[in-house]
């Protein structure tokens, strides 16, 4: 890459998913993150019970994210060829885990009664 600016990255992502889907995904991410922050501020505390469920869901999110990426790219664990590949797998797993945790926590806060 000659110059990797924010603009280039956005252009690349728009082409990757299609402009509509990309911005829809961004919107979903922003909305879920916004709702998460909203419930944190509303409740003025992290609920340990909800957090426990969120934590338990993290490995599921991690594995799901890695398997998803492998599926759409016709590859598998045998293709891990060097340290950077391990870093990429861990990165994808971490993103999946955090995303899942935030989603689960937020969903519980919004939809479960307030005994948590």
């Amino acid at each position: 890459m000659k110059e990797l600016t924010l603009q280039t990255l956005i252009a690349v992502f728009e082409e990757m998913f299609g402009r509509g889907l990309f911005w829809a995904l961004v919107a979903v991410a922003v909305v879920v993150t916004g709702l998460y922050l909203y419930v944190l501020i509303r409740d003025r505390a992290l609920s340990m019970r909800k957090f426990l469920w969120a934590q338990l869901s993290m490995p599921v999110g991690a594995v799901a994210a890695v398997v998803f990426v492998q599926k759409i790219t016709s590859s598998g664990f045998r293709d891990i060829g060097g340290p950077i590949d391990v870093v990429v797998v861990l990165g994808i797993a971490t993103l999946g885990a955090i995303g899942m945790a935030i989603l689960v926590y937020t969903a519980q806060s919004l939809f479960r009664s307030k005994h948590g």
Partner: peptide, 26 residues
């Protein structure tokens, strides 16, 4: 080195980068 990340680039990012280039954006 034969790497998975380089494959991911070819498989996922390359066409997107190419299209962005066509539009004069990359």
């Amino acid at each position: 080195e034969e790497l998975w990340i380089s494959w991911l680039m070819k498989e996922v990012a390359l066409k997107a980068t190419y299209n962005a280039m066509l539009r004069g954006k990359a």
